Simulated scan of single mutants.
Amino acid sequence: MSEPLRLYVGYDSREDIAWQVCRYSVLQHASKPVEVTPLKLPELRAQGIYTRPVDTLGSTEFTFSRFLVPALAGFEGWAVFCDCDFLWFGDIADLFAQADDRYAVMVVQHDYQPKEAVKMDGKAQAAYPRKNWSSLMLFNCGHPSNKTLTPEVVNRETGAFLHRFQWLSDDQIGSLDTGWNWLEGWYPKPAQGTPQAVHYTRGGPWFENYQDVDYAQEWRDTAEEVKRLGIKA
């Protein structure tokens, strides 16, 4: 029997319901077994893997921990990282099917220039090159260049170095279709169907001020199903 697909999800204690919905929506649409792991900072700190000081400027608790994925995966095989504020409509197996060994990482290469000054629950909305590229990453964990992404490097390097993929050359970064990281409020809704994965990067329906965003009702319906079924991960 083949190994399950590996998905690591950024976890923020302020957004537990977002993580629950993200996980459930992935599993609901997956045609293959998926091992879903939340990146919880207390656990990573207890294991001695994550030692960075608390980042008061970071908008989430997983601003940096996402780059530990190749190390957590043993620098072997392929793994996906996504932020917790995703609602999946597509089959994550189809995303893994796009894995191309030529690349160290594959991402949706957005040209995202947010107009808002704040997002989510009042966090500053920063603009920087390659913004939101790192919010969903298909990692080739065994790629030689990713083997330099050790916990020591992740704990030491700057946000610019990590989020701009400066440990890689440009030709080592592959491109994914927009639908795999569809930025709510930035991309137009498709005329038919849904994106494979909606990313509520400005803020989602679990925040009071974001009740009317695109695909809000679909998110609420999924959250209600999670609660009704008593699912807790």
Rank of each mutant, 00 (worst) to 15 (best):
V108F: 15
G77C: 03
P151R: 00
A127Q: 13
S169K: 02
Y112G: 09
T148L: 08
K115L: 08
S175Q: 08
F64W: 01
L138V: 05
L87M: 06
R66N: 15
Q172E: 07
L176C: 01
V108H: 03
K119D: 13
G58A: 14
T60H: 04
G193C: 06
D85I: 10
N132D: 04
L149D: 01
P190V: 13
F139W: 07
N140K: 08
G179T: 07
F75I: 10
E116T: 14
N140E: 08
G193H: 15
G77S: 07
Y187V: 09
D83L: 07
L183A: 05
G122W: 14
V118K: 04
T194Y: 12
W180R: 01
G74M: 07
Y112R: 12
K189P: 10
D111N: 10
G77E: 02
K123I: 10
A97Y: 11
A73F: 04
F67C: 13
S134I: 05
W78E: 13
D55Q: 02
L68N: 00
Y187I: 04
S65E: 00
L72P: 00
E61N: 01
S175Y: 05
W133V: 12
F67W: 11
F165A: 08
L95W: 01
D177N: 15
V54N: 08
D171K: 15
K189H: 05
F161G: 04
W167N: 12
A124C: 03
V153I: 14
P129I: 15
N132I: 06
D100I: 11
V153D: 00
F161V: 00
D170R: 03
D100W: 06
Q192R: 09
P190A: 02
D100L: 08
D170Q: 05
G77K: 01
L183H: 06
R130C: 13
C84K: 09
Q166M: 11
H110C: 10
Q113L: 14
L136K: 14
D170N: 09
A191S: 09
Y187L: 05
V54G: 09
L176A: 07
A126L: 13
V154D: 00
P129W: 02
H143W: 02
G122T: 03
L168N: 14
G185R: 02
N140P: 04
V118T: 14
A124I: 12
G174C: 08
L136G: 07
E157L: 13
N132M: 10
G90F: 00
H143K: 07
E152V: 12
M137T: 10
L72G: 01
S134N: 07
F96T: 13
G159C: 04
F62N: 00
L72K: 05
D111A: 14
W182I: 10
F81M: 13
A73N: 05
P129M: 06
G179E: 05
K189T: 05
E61A: 15
E157A: 11
H110I: 15
Q166L: 07
Q172R: 11
E184K: 06
E152C: 03
V69F: 01
A97S: 11
